[in-house]
Amino acid sequence: MFSDIASAIIIGLVLGSMYALAAVGLTLVWGVLKILNFAHGGFITLGAYFVWVGITFLGGNYVISFLLVMGLTFLLGFVLNAGVIRPLQGRPESETNIFIATLATSIIIENLIIVGFGGRYKSIPEMASGSLTLGSISINFQQMIIMAVAPVFLVGLMYYLKKMKSGMAVRAVAQDADGAAIVGIDSERVYSYTIAIGALMAGVAGVLLGVIFYLSPGMGGDPLVRALFIMVLGGMGSVKGTIYGAYIIGIIDALARYFIGMFWASPILFVMFILLLLLRPQGLFGVKV
């Protein structure tokens, strides 16, 4: 019983790391642009496939492949903004329309992957094989890498938002777009940067997901659904809240899998999601809306 709880918490941290990366970009985009980017799941998938391409065709170099993913998803984030989001921003019904347009984008991405890579599973070779066993708890090196890599990116993002000039501009726009405009911040520029950074974080999440699991064209769907829950739990738009939220959900998810069974883990999370939306829509860390 005790060891079950302990290993559930460790697995919860692994899942939480993945969820945090998957959710943080979504939250950032919501915080700044007040839009729900449904193409986010597609970008998670893209990240995984890009790293696969990198490793397959560049002779197995993880570092270069990782950089390739970051570069490509970042650039495609700009494309997403210029081609889909910006033209719809600021129009009436933009919230609904951007939801639909980004949903359409995710359909395009999924089907491009089916056409380009086929629907059969692909896999990324292991970064490190082997595992660590402590009593009845076992954790493999891949999972440890995820637990270590995720915080690096999350802290990096926090640092960027807090300390760097363009990051501070992002926060300024998120808090008060008009005020930011008065002090001379080009909000259009900030918007496109934000979406690109969100896309990059999705790509990184995709890499980590691809490392422990196989690649398939629809792989971004499930993490996206989890990310929505986490985003609300953390308080819509709060990056810090989202990170906490992700680890909380990760641990609850793992505990549910251990003690209730894998079938009901998801429905239980959805019931909690509904209760959260009804009872505390501002989330754990958000301000009341």
């Binding site: 697995i11 009845s136 793992a254």
Partner: peptide, 21 residues
Amino acid sequence: KEHLPSAKVEDWSSVLSKIRS
């Protein structure tokens, strides 16, 4: 007995811990 909703499983630890105990 473990029944899953879909083929997407990122982690089997919960089932394996039952098997190991």
